[in-house]
Amino acid sequence: MSCLETIQAYGLRSLGIGERLLPKSDFTLCEHFTLIGSGMIWNIYFGVLALVLGFFAATAVALARNADNPLVRKPAQYFIFIFRGSPLFIQFFLFYETFVLLPKVGIDINLGFVELTAETRWLTRAWLGALIVLFLNTTAYTAEIFYGALRSVPRGDVDAANAYGMTGWARFRRIIWPSMLRLSWPAYTNEAIFLFHATTLVFFSSFPAWQQKGDALYYANYFADKTFNPFIPYPILAGYFIILTLCVIGFYGIINARLNRHLPRERRPRLRIRPQIIR
């Protein structure tokens, strides 16, 4: 099989399109690259969706964490503590077992005038179940970062907004929120990088890879198990992830530049390694 044919057969294998059977022996380098690359689709899917959804949820949780009312503040505090204080690996197991215990047919929710059926059958599948876990996890981490930034929004900015008669939503939307994002952006970039790394755990916790449709690490591990040679598949996977990380840094760097465009050039914070804020 030529390399082009391999790509046609296995390029979208992780989505279930193409050849059904995985290669069994005499693996070529091309097969390694194609299958592992095909698995990256899932890593990107999980990472991007969890980050996008988590971004908005985290803003809300950070605001709740900063609220004066303990009825709002306490739940947010506990949410952040539980998801930041426990390993993601355990969270995957815990949620999977919960999802398995839910009845397969769905839960009937009686609202009095109308009866809703909540679909539960997809929850045990990785594409939804694992996404929910990753979403909650990144929400907690991001909320903590945003909360820290919220506390360090310059007092003068808020005073100026008050002097202009801005209140409530307008003040938040135009003054506080941009400052919060600007201050938290380097840490948030870090979080995004590590969330993409965390996506590799999905098929190694309890979520089964249905019909061998797995992520990049799933396929890399498949090759390593079959050939008993870790020196080819894992470095390929590493290469893919370095490229992905560089893309994430590039994308967040563009947003960082935009958030800081009002500052003089030398005062703009640059995105670089912040060892004290590793996830």
Binding site: I193, F196, H197, A198, T200, L201, F204, L217, A220, N221, A224, F228, P230, F231, Y234, L237, A238, F241, I242, T245, L246, I273
Partner: peptide, 17 residues
């Protein structure tokens, strides 16, 4: 290198390697 590559990859790699 650890910043670009997920730690679980290292775990699976180093144990065999």
């Amino acid at each position: 290198v650890v910043r670009g590559i997920p730690d679980i990859v290292f775990f699976l790699f180093f144990v065999i390697a």
